[in-house]
Design a protein around this nucleic acid. Structure first.
Length: 426
RNA sequence: GGAGAGGUGGCAGAGUGGUCGAAUGCGACGGUCUCGAAAACCGUUAUACCUUCGGGUAUCGAGAGUUCGAAUCUCUCCCUCUCCGCCA
C-alpha cells in the first residue's frame, strides 16, 4: 500500500508509476474519495466533540443531583446524526481502501521502463571458471527422460493421487530434493547469517493481503473455505507476516530469516505454457530468504540478498544469469526485482529459479510492521525484502541436464556429498 | 468433539454506566543526590487520524446493539489457557 499522503501530494508521480506497471489508474477516484472522507471526518468530529462536552455536563448535573433532562433531550438526535455520518464515513473508507489495495508499488528509478520480459536487462552471467561455452545448447536427455531412466520422479502417480502438476519424488530423486533443501538452509544459516523458520503452510487472508497477493492475485491461491485458510504460494507470506502489527527494536534490524516451505500455486490462466515436468507445477519446494531492514539500507541489502541466492548456484556450479526486471515484468508489490535464471542446456533455455525483491515499505505498511530508532522515537515502517534462495523445481531441471554424463549417469557435485548416501546417480 | 476460565497501556494488574486514555506496581527514559554507581526522591512514559496548528476525534480482543453517555450492560464472532475425550 502506498502512503495516501504521497498520492495526495504527488499524484503525477504515482500516475507515472502506475502506468509503468500497466496497472489501472485510479488516482482521481482515490483523490475524490480522500477529499470526501476528510470532509465527513471534520463534520462528524465536531458533533462528537459536542456530545462529549454535553455528556460531561450531564454527568456533573447528575452528580450534583440536579435535573439534566433538558440537556439529555438536546442530545437525543445527535447520536443518530453521528451514527449516520459514521456509516457514510465507513463506506468512503471501504471504497478508498479497496482502491488503494489495487495500486502497485512504485518502481525504483534504476528500473528500466518496459512492457514485458523482453525489456529486462541482463546484469551478469556466471559459469564455473567463466567458461562462456557453458551457455550453449547441448545434446542429451531432458530432465523428464533422465528422471524416468533413474526413477527419480513419478508425475503420473502424482496426477493420480492429486492432480497434474503435483509431482512425486521417488528414491534418489527424493533424496536429491531433500539434499538441495538442506544444503541451502545450511548455507544461509551458517554462512549468510539468516535464522531459520519453518512456517505453517496455510495462512489467513490478512496475511495474504499483508504481502500483496490479495486482492489482486486471489485467483492464484488455493483456498480451504471450510476453515478460511489459504495454501501459501511462497514462504514469504507467513514469514513476512510474522511481525505484522509489531514494533521491532532497532537492535533486531536487520532481521533475517530463511525458511523452507512447499509452495502452492493454482497457475490459473497459464495452462499449456511450459507445463512439462517441473517447468510449471502447482506444488514445489523452496527455501525463501526474508529480510526486515532499515529504510536507508534496503537497496544495499537487496544486493546482498541477491548475492546470497546466487551463492547457492555458484556452489552447485550451475550456470546462471541475473536479470533486472523492467517495470512491465516486475511484481505488483516491489520497487525493484532481480530474477536469477539458470541455464538448462538440453532445453536450451533460461529458467527462472529465483526472484529477489525490495518492497521498501509497501508490505510493511499493509502488514503494519514497524521499528523504533530510539526509545521515544515515533515508530517507522521497516523495509522488507525477499528472494528465493532457491526454488528447487527449475533448479532440478538445470541440475540434471547440467550434470548428466555421456553414459546417461548423473554426477553429483562435491558440496552435496555430505547430504547424500551416493556420489552419483548411476 | 465436551466442560470451564479469561482477553485492559512495554509487562503485571485495578476498574462493573458519567471529570477513565484509564488507578497502582514493575520496567524504560530524563533529572536531583554522588568522585562514580546503587539506593532514595522528582518528573516523563501509547498509537492512529483530522486540523483553520489553538486544538479535536478514535482506540480497553473484533463487530453490532442499548444509552444523552459504554472498558463497564446485551448479542455475535475471534483468540488464549485449563480439564476430559480422540488422535499423527
Amino acid at each position: 500500500m502506498l502512503d495516501i499522503k504521497l498520492i495526495r501530494e504527488q499524484p503525477d508521480v504515482v500516475r507515472a508509476g502506475i502506468h509503468a506497471k500497466h496497472s489501472e489508474d485510479v488516482v482521481d477516484q482515490v483523490l475524490d474519495l480522500d477529499r470526501e472522507r476528510r470532509a465527513i471526518i471534520q463534520e462528524v468530529e465536531v458533533l462528537k466533540s459536542r456530545r462529549n462536552t454535553v455528556s460531561e455536563d450531564i454527568a456533573k448535573l447528575k452528580r450534583a443531583k440536579e435535573n439534566a433532562d433538558e440537556k439529555i433531550a438536546e442530545m437525543k438526535g445527535v447520536g443518530d446524526e453521528i451514527a449516520d455520518l459514521d456509516n457514510r464515513l465507513r463506506e468512503k473508507e471501504l471504497a478508498l481502501n479497496l482502491l488503494l489495495d489495487t495500486i502497485p508499488n512504485m518502481p525504483h528509478p534504476s528500473v528500466p521502463i518496459g512492457n514485458d520480459a523482453s525489456g529486462n536487462v541482463e546484469m551478469k552471467r556466471w559459469s564455473p571458471n567463466g567458461d562462456q561455452s557453458a551457455f550453449t545448447k547441448r545434446e542429451g536427455l531432458d530432465h523428464l527422460a533422465l528422471g524416468e531412466r533413474h526413477k527419480l520422479f513419478d508425475f503420473k502417480r502424482g496426477a493420480k493421487i492429486a492432480a497434474a502438476g503435483f509431482p512425486v519424488y521417488t528414491g534418489r530423486g527424493a533424496q536429491l530434493e531433500r539434499a538441495f533443501i538442506n544444503f541451502m538452509l545450511d548455507l544461509h544459516t551458517r554462512a549468510h547469517g539468516y535464522t531459520e523458520v519453518l512456517p505453517p503452510f496455510f495462512v489467513n487472508s490478512p496475511s495474504l493481503r499483508g504481502t500483496g497477493q490479495f486482492p489482486k492475485f486471489a485467483d492464484q491461491v488455493y483456498h480451504m473455505p471450510e476453515d478460511q485458510l489459504y495454501a501459501i504460494p511462497t514462504a514469504e507470506v507467513p514469514v513476512t507476516n510474522l511481525y505484522a502489527d509489531e514494533v521491532l527494536t532497532m537492535e533486531s534490524l536487520p532481521l533475517m530469516h530463511c525458511a523452507f516451505s512447499a509452495c502452492f500455486r493454482r497457475e490459473a490462466g497459464s495452462y499449456g505454457k511450459d507445463t512439462r515436468g517441473f517447468l510449471r507445477v502447482h506444488q514445489f519446494n523452496k527455501v525463501e530468504l526474508v529480510k526486515f531492514v532499515l529504510p536507508e539500507t534496503s537497496y544495499e541489502e537487496h544486493e546482498k540478498l541477491t548475492a546470497d541466492a546466487e551463492r547457492v548456484l555458484e556452489l552447485l556450479e550451475i550456470p546462471y544469469r541475473r536479470m533486472l526486471c523492467c517495470t512491465g515484468d516486475q511484481s505488483f508489490s516491489n520497487t525493484k526485482q532481480y530474477d536469477l535464471e539458470v541455464w538448462a542446456p538440453v532445453e536450451g533455455n533460461w529458467l527462472e529459479a529465483s526472484s529477489c525483491s525490495n518492497f521498501e515499505d509497501f508490505q510493511a505498511r499493509r502488514a503494519n510492521i514497524r521499528f523504533r530508532r530510539e526509545q521515544k522515537a515515533k515508530p517507522e515502517f521497516v523495509h522488507t525484502l525477499n528472494g528465493s534462495g532457491l526454488a528447487t523445481s527449475r533448479l532440478m531441471v538445470a541440475f540434471l541436464e547440467t550434470y548428466q554424463q555421456p553414459d546417461g549417469t548423473i554426477a553429483i557435485p562435491e558440496v552435496l556429498h555430505p547430504y547424500l548416501p551416493f556420489s552419483a546417480i548411476e
